[in-house]
Amino acid sequence: MSEAEGIRLQKVLANAGVASRRVSEQLIVEGRVRVNGVIVSELGARIDPENDLVDVDGTAVQLDATKRYVMLNKPTGVVSTMKDERGRADLRRFAEEWEERLYNVGRLDADTSGLLVLTNDGELAHVLAHPRFGVTKVYIAKVEGRVTAQTIARLTRGIELDDGPIAADRARLLDASSGSSLVELTLHSGRNRIVRRMLAEVGHPVAELVRRQFGPLHLGTLPVGRTRELTKVERGALLTLSRREPDAPPAEGVETPESEEQETS
């Protein structure tokens, strides 16, 4: 490390955009800043921004400015890979909008639209995509037929599929009219095409499916086919999530098949 074995913590916080240096000093004195999980309340403390983990009020602070986090509202008809060997529409054109070499976190199948994260942070991508971490995803499905309250209860109570039982974390009926229904499902399972299979099993095949939420991220008003960089608050929420199990093995690559809706042939 340079600068006499580290950089003053308040300077690191200010450089990261947390607050001005004076306000950062106040945060430290008030005991609201932790370094590697330990509260640091002395203004003379120095850290190594390249290796130390910092959080303020329990929310992680991004110190590595080389990491990029982007939200995409994936259109239907696009496969979740950066280079499709079969020549189908893929994610390259969305990633090319950014200087960094980005990859998708998990996958949505070609017929599913909605929230995908593109990033060059492999460690965070592993946490978000791997089902063992239980990151929840929220989907809205337009299904055939009129869904009843009994069917919603069945989805949360649990149903049996070919590869074992499954239950939604939450389920809501948003609308039931004109021979179709809108259903909101929240799950953390990483099984293949699980949303479509669950709804088909209860007699309501999916006509349209969109992922509206991925962990702490909400799609909001982002138009289909558009990207945007995550806000500082969103980045902090993702990094906080990624530090829940620091001993988890890193992924070999950012792109992984573990997700709610895997790309299938």
Rank of each mutant, 00 (worst) to 15 (best):
S189P: 05
V233F: 07
L174K: 03
E258R: 15
N192H: 12
R93P: 03
L161Y: 00
K232C: 01
D163M: 01
Y69R: 01
K67C: 07
R197T: 10
P246F: 03
L187S: 13
L115H: 12
V78W: 09
E260N: 14
L13T: 02
V138I: 10
V195H: 06
D90H: 13
V210A: 05
V138W: 00
K74V: 03
L128S: 10
S80G: 05
S177W: 03
I194R: 14
I152D: 01
G106S: 07
R34G: 07
E85L: 11
V147Q: 02
V210G: 00
G164I: 04
M198I: 09
R107T: 10
R21M: 04
A237L: 14
G225F: 02
L173Y: 04
A14L: 01
T112D: 07
D121T: 09
Q150H: 03
I140Q: 11
E201T: 13
K74S: 09
S20Y: 01
M82D: 06
L239M: 05
E25C: 02
R228T: 08
W98L: 12
S113P: 09
S181T: 10
E99I: 08
Y139C: 07
A95T: 15
V202L: 07
F133R: 05
E50D: 14
E263A: 14
G203H: 04
K142V: 13
D55M: 09
G31A: 05
D121E: 11
R196M: 10
L116P: 12
L187K: 03
V195F: 04
G6V: 02
L185D: 07
L53Y: 11
S259F: 12
G225M: 00
D109K: 08
H130R: 12
V233R: 15
N36Q: 03
L108S: 10
Y69D: 01
G77T: 08
R172T: 01
G134I: 10
N73H: 15
V54E: 11
P257D: 15
I152F: 09
G37I: 09
D55K: 10
K74L: 04
P246Q: 12
G220A: 08
P165F: 01
S113V: 13
R22M: 01
F214K: 00
P223E: 00
G236I: 02
R157F: 02
E184H: 05
Y103H: 14
T81S: 10
L63T: 11
N73M: 13
N120T: 06
H204I: 11
A141V: 02
E50I: 10
A237Q: 15
G114W: 08
G58W: 09
R46A: 12
K232G: 04
S41N: 15
P257I: 15
R157D: 09
A207G: 02
R170F: 03
G87T: 08
D48I: 09
R193P: 05
S259M: 13
A65Y: 02
D48T: 09
V210I: 09
R191E: 04
R107K: 14
Q10V: 10
D175H: 11
T156D: 02
D64P: 03
L230T: 06
V206Y: 00
D52F: 12
